[in-house]
Amino acid sequence: MLIALDSQNHYVQADLIKEKNIKGSLFCPGCRQPVYLKRGKIKIPHFSHYQASDCFLFSEGETLEHLAGKQMLSQWFTQQEIPCMLEAYLPKLKQRPDLLIWLDQKIPVAIEFQCSFISEANMIKRTQSYQKAGYKVIWILGKRFKLKRKLTAQQRLFLYYHKNLNYHLFFLDTNHQKLHIFYHLIQFERNELLKSRNYQVSLTNKKITLKTIINHFETLTYQP
């Protein structure tokens, strides 16, 4: 986890906290059990439970890709002054999106960075839960879901549709810090060849913002 609670019940972020400034204990925002800061040469700073935990919100098996991706996206939104919360718990939904952002003051957007397998039933349940509560939801896929010659059943779950983009998918490459938007997706039934266009966004390039991306796709047209 990248977020913990301090003894004053304030949220603290793992990559921003200094060990000498930690006063008292740190706690998991989900189960409220004690956690500690882990900082090493390989893994990015994060919090972990002292003992094996059955916490229903935070898993100890979180991968480096998942931790890094959440942090990259959070930094990208923050530098654009887009309100963003890491690992925000939504008590009414009993869900914790990886990020929660506000593109306007009325509609929050839940962002899920999906790196591992998720069942169709669970994905649909989580998506509908967000939507019924008035949230938009964006699923961004990790390296497990990399596009190849044809769409898999798992990839099909995360397809979006827009009149300008046709069917499209979002991927995050944490190794190169790039967001990929594969759009105009077409799969030919006879030989199952997949065609698409790829719009790449470097998360380290401050000139490319969310507004830049939206403006770019608003000028596109699609001919079926």
Rank of each mutant, 00 (worst) to 15 (best):
residue 2 L to E: 06
residue 2 L to S: 06
residue 6 D to W: 04
residue 7 S to M: 09
residue 7 S to E: 14
residue 8 Q to M: 10
residue 11 Y to V: 06
residue 13 Q to V: 15
residue 16 L to C: 08
residue 20 K to G: 03
residue 20 K to A: 10
residue 26 L to W: 00
residue 29 P to V: 11
residue 32 R to S: 13
residue 33 Q to I: 09
residue 33 Q to P: 02
residue 33 Q to C: 11
residue 35 V to D: 13
residue 40 G to L: 07
residue 42 I to D: 12
residue 43 K to S: 13
residue 44 I to R: 15
residue 46 H to V: 08
residue 47 F to Y: 05
residue 49 H to A: 02
residue 52 A to M: 10
residue 52 A to C: 01
residue 53 S to W: 00
residue 56 F to A: 12
residue 57 L to H: 14
residue 61 G to D: 14
residue 61 G to N: 15
residue 66 H to N: 06
residue 66 H to A: 05
residue 66 H to E: 04
residue 67 L to D: 04
residue 67 L to Y: 04
residue 68 A to C: 06
residue 68 A to V: 13
residue 68 A to T: 15
residue 69 G to D: 02
residue 70 K to R: 13
residue 72 M to S: 09
residue 76 W to Q: 04
residue 77 F to R: 08
residue 78 T to H: 03
residue 79 Q to G: 01
residue 83 P to L: 03
residue 85 M to S: 06
residue 86 L to Q: 13
residue 87 E to M: 04
residue 90 L to G: 05
residue 94 K to Y: 08
residue 96 R to Q: 12
residue 97 P to M: 09
residue 99 L to I: 12
residue 101 I to G: 09
residue 103 L to A: 05
residue 104 D to F: 08
residue 106 K to C: 01
residue 108 P to S: 03
residue 108 P to H: 06
residue 112 E to Y: 12
residue 112 E to S: 04
residue 118 I to E: 14
residue 119 S to M: 08
residue 121 A to L: 09
residue 123 M to R: 14
residue 123 M to E: 13
residue 124 I to E: 14
residue 126 R to A: 04
residue 126 R to E: 13
residue 127 T to N: 05
residue 128 Q to W: 02
residue 128 Q to Y: 09
residue 128 Q to E: 15
residue 129 S to N: 13
residue 130 Y to I: 05
residue 131 Q to N: 10
residue 131 Q to T: 08
residue 132 K to R: 12
residue 135 Y to L: 07
residue 137 V to Q: 11
residue 138 I to L: 15
residue 143 K to S: 15
residue 144 R to Y: 13
residue 145 F to N: 06
residue 148 K to C: 05
residue 151 L to F: 01
residue 151 L to S: 02
residue 153 A to Q: 10
residue 154 Q to N: 01
residue 155 Q to M: 11
residue 155 Q to P: 05
residue 156 R to I: 00
residue 159 L to C: 06
residue 161 Y to N: 06
residue 161 Y to D: 00
residue 162 H to E: 10
residue 163 K to Q: 14
residue 164 N to E: 12
residue 165 L to C: 06
residue 167 Y to Q: 15
residue 168 H to K: 12
residue 169 L to Q: 13
residue 175 N to V: 05
residue 175 N to R: 10
residue 179 L to G: 12
residue 180 H to A: 12
residue 181 I to S: 03
residue 183 Y to L: 04
residue 186 I to S: 04
residue 190 R to L: 10
residue 193 L to E: 10
residue 197 R to G: 02
residue 199 Y to R: 08
residue 200 Q to Y: 00
residue 200 Q to P: 02
residue 200 Q to A: 11
residue 202 S to T: 07
residue 204 T to R: 10
residue 207 K to L: 13
residue 210 L to C: 05
residue 211 K to D: 14
residue 212 T to R: 12
residue 213 I to Y: 06
residue 213 I to L: 10
residue 213 I to F: 04
residue 214 I to T: 12
residue 215 N to G: 02
residue 215 N to F: 00
residue 215 N to W: 01
residue 216 H to V: 05
residue 220 L to I: 11
residue 221 T to D: 02
residue 221 T to G: 07
residue 222 Y to C: 04
residue 222 Y to M: 03
residue 222 Y to R: 07
residue 223 Q to Y: 14
residue 223 Q to G: 01
